[in-house]
Structures are given as C-alpha cells and as structure tokens.
C-alpha cells in the first residue's frame, strides 16, 4: 500500500513539475544598432552611431506619449550615451494597432533634457513565436530641448535590432557619411515579407545577421538587396506628444494611498504613487497573470491534499500499526 502511494506521489510530483515549468524562457536580448544618416547640426550634437544591447520588455502601464496604449504591450528598450552628454533612451513599441512606435529621450542629471518627437518613421518590428524580435527600418525625429522648448536638432537614421545571445557584439550598421549627405534609405520590406524565419530563438545558437552594405551605402537587413528606394516618410506614428502622460505614477515616488500589498501594481513601498485609481487599468491583465500563476502553483497541492486524505483514510483502515520513527 505504502509503495503504491509512493509511486503515485512520485508520478504526480514529476508530472506537476513538468506541466508547471514548461520550457525555460529568459528575457530576450537584442543586438541594437542605430546610425545617423542625416543631422542638422546646430549644437554639435550630431553623430548618433551606437551599437549596444537592448532588451524586450512589456509596458507596465499605459505609457506616456502614447508609446503603449495599454499594459502588456511589448517594448524594445535600448540605451546608449547621448551624443553630447547624458543617456539616450530609445524605445520601440508594438501596439495592438500594429504600427510600431518609436520614442527617443535623452536624460541628463535626472531630467529629460531632450525629447525626440518622431516626425517620420518607417520601422517594422516583428516578433517570432517565441518573442524574439527583429526590428529594422528608418526613422526621423526632432529632438527638442525640454527646458526651453525650442527645436534644436533634427536626426534621421536607421535602426536594426535582432535577437541575440548575450555575448554577441551586434550587427553593424553603416555610419553616417563624412559629408553628411543624406544617404538613400534601405529598402524596407513590407510586412508580408518580414523575414521571420531567420529570427532565432533567444536560447538558440549565436545569431548571424548579415547587414549588407551596398554600393550606395545602404544597409539592408532583409535578404533582398536590390536597390535602395527613396523613402517616403510616413507621417505621425503616434509619437508626437512630448508631454508626459499621467500614468499610475505621480511626480514623486511616494506610496501614499496604496496599502493593499496584494494588489498587483499598487503595492505599498513599490513607489506607485498618486493613489490607486489609475492603476485599475493595469489590474485585469496582472490579475489574470496572478490567477494563472496561482492556479499553476496550487493545483498539485490540491491533488496531493486529496490523495493524502484518501490514503490516510485507507491506511487507518488497513494498517493499524504506526510506522516506527527514528
């Protein structure tokens, strides 16, 4: 009898472990390159050419500047030293509407010194089934001095990001030409031509991405390298607002009004401020995740509890002798 119970428990624990775990899923990192192909240099702040590493996250709440329309939207994040000083942060989201949105910020001494209003973008952000991103295209933004509100810089560049292993250096995008003559834009394939097949698993082998540099100075991440069309900048892109949207956070990181530690996104000490009213928009998704996690956590326990109860009853009937302990 005891042996049967042991076997049952072992089978159940192993099954629950396998079912609960699934496959490993680590955060997706990307090799991220951004290169400037045109810049109106008024303050000597041109020269954005960075090869860095990015990471794919999700919007924790509806983001400012309409970068994300709701929580849970995937955002590709990358930062690098700003052209002049501080830190430049570029984030590209893939809202449900399907149009990728790009946001550019420069942070210096605790303040957003430049806010890049995207004036034109032609960016494709595709994700594989496992969440591995591939981003390519070109963008144009006007970086504005937040403090004075005067337009200072106009950048035009191209961006490329592919899923990569942590050790990868990242693909290189050709930098700006010495004469700063606007280079022809890379041909961006239509969405149906998005090369999803080469997008590797984040846990897979090293990604080998070939950035083809044509004689015209274009980089084309897509297999097709024929010619470089003159881009027709699409307007808008939904990132025109520079004003910070009022999310869940207030200006100061205090935790007033959020005393329910079990409320996702509104925990005390977690620096969600300004009351919990605005957090309610985040709760359905997080609550679903929480319920799912709790269910995955507790269903084996419920099974074990039932088995234990049944076995205990059987043992009390069939095995009057208590086991001898230590």
């Amino acid at each position: 009898m005891l042996r049967s119970v042991l076997r049952a428990h072992l089978a159940m624990t192993m099954a629950s472990l396998l079912l609960a775990c699934g496959g490993p899923h680590e955060p997706v990192t990307v090799s991220f390159s951004i290169a400037e192909i045109e810049c109106q240099e008024e303050l000597g702040a041109c020269g954005i050419e960075q090869h860095t590493r990015g990471i794919v996250a999700e919007s924790f709440e509806p983001g400012p500047d309409e970068l994300s329309e709701e929580s849970g939207e995937r955002i590709l994040y990358a930062d690098f030293p700003a052209p002049k000083e501080g830190l430049a942060i570029i984030e590209i989201s893939q809202p449900r509407s399907g149009v990728a949105k790009v946001r550019y910020r420069e942070v210096y001494r605790g303040e957003v010194s430049f806010a890049g209003a995207i004036t034109s973008q032609d960016v494709e952000l595709a994700f594989g089934d496992d969440g591995a991103p591939m981003l390519y295209g070109r963008f144009e933004f006007t970086a504005t001095d937040v403090e004075r509100g005067t337009t200072r810089r106009v950048h035009s560049g191209r961006v490329l990001a592919v899923a990569s292993s942590p050790d990868s250096v990242g693909p290189r995008v050709p930098g700006p030409s010495p004469t700063r003559v606007p280079a022809p834009a890379p041909e961006v394939p239509e969405e149906k031509d998005v090369p999803t097949q080469p997008v590797p698993s984040p846990r897979g082998p090293e990604v080998s991405v070939v950035v083809v540099e044509t004689a015209h100075g274009c980089s084309d991440p897509a297999p097709e390298t024929s010619g470089c069309e003159d881009p027709t900048p699409s307007s808008g892109g939904g990132c025109s607002s520079d004003t910070a949207a009022s999310g869940c956070e207030a200006d100061s990181f205090d935790s007033s009004g959020c005393d329910d530690a079990s409320s996702a996104g509104c925990e005390a000490d977690s620096f969600d401020a300004g009351g919990c009213d605005n957090c309610s928009a985040n709760r359905p998704t997080q609550r679903l995740n929480l319920v799912h996690a709790i269910w995955r956590l507790f269903w084996p326990v419920l099974l074990v509890g039932g088995l234990n109860r049944w076995t205990r009853r059987r043992l009390s009937l069939q095995a009057p002798c208590e086991p001898v302990d230590l």
Binding site: A57, F60, E61, P62, A115, S270, N289
Partner: peptide, 20 residues
C-alpha cells in the same frame, strides 16, 4: 516577474521569465 517603475516621462516596464 520583474517590474521597473521609472519617471512618469518614461513609463514603466515589466517582463516575466522562467528558468531552471
């Protein structure tokens, strides 16, 4: 489950993952 609350001008980020 990770979350990062940043300045309101940047918004929050989160990600979930699992590992052995």
């Amino acid at each position: 489950f990770q979350s990062l609350t940043r300045d309101p001008s940047l918004g929050g980020l989160s990600v979930s993952s699992d590992q052995f």
